[in-house]
Design a protein around this nucleic acid. Structure first.
Lengths: 121, 121
DNA sequence: GAAACAGTGAAGCATCCACTTGACAATTTA
DNA sequence: TAAATTGTCAAGTGGATGCTTCACTGTTTC
């Protein structure tokens, strides 16, 4: 509630907003379907709209979110906008997982150490 | 255990409801904050509620989503429910990335092959 | 037993979000 | 130029979602 969007006085690294955008983008099944499609081959807006059974407008809105998350790159030539996958978002996602994994693996170690202590002490 | 609604022995990655639940769970900043906290150390419901500045009820609702996504494991002893990170969800997330990465890296190869053809043809 | 503690369930509320429609802009084609 | 194609902008709508309050159960402590 009191926590608003821009002020983040606590220790979270500044990439927090980027992670936010990333996960929000991936949280929607339609956008993931778009990524599925683009993983196989680049496509135009109308091609995506046809494949997904939604309007051009909806695709455009999703594309903006995917682009801001670094998951998709689009480029307009003439009247056609072509879309393809971008590495950045995926790399960031993997980094996030690695960071967290290292954290809780350490915490598991501590837990086991404690249990061993109790058993042996 | 095998919570696969429909196992798909073919090459397709599990685009099932599990992936859906996983990304939906990760799409909310509060739930990710809970994971941040639990990555450092296990905690009770009220401890999480205090740290996040939300009610016990809200924490309970988030916990259910995180648990169904395989990201958190909870266990109640006496009147206290203790929560900690679960590997399953994270493993599944990494798998998803790997699957997609392999797909679009192939598509990049095809793209470059096409470009080379056009330049040489 | 009474009181404090820890959590759960149901219902409501305010906001967010995916999607649509309709009007418009820009580019290609006839 | 007119018409078709491709996409964009603005505004609105229905449903999902996060969070709350209130009432309640079960557990520990006095």
């Amino acid at each position: 509630m009191s926590s608003d969007t821009q002020s983040d006085p606590r220790g979270d690294p500044p990439r927090s907003a980027e992670v936010d955008r990333l996960f929000h983008a991936l949280g929607d099944p339609t956008r993931r379907a778009m990524l599925d499609s683009l993983s196989i081959a680049p496509a135009s807006v109308s091609k995506l709209a046809g494949a997904l059974g939604i309007t051009l407008t909806a695709v455009g809105q999703h594309l903006q979110i995917l682009e801001e998350a670094g998951l998709v790159k689009t480029e307009k030539q003439g009247r056609v906008r072509s879309c393809r996958i971008e590495r950045t978002g995926f790399d960031r996602l993997e980094q996030w997982i690695r960071d967290h994994r290292s954290h809780w693996e350490r915490s598991f170690d501590r837990l086991h150490a404690l249990l061993d202590e109790e058993q042996n002490g």
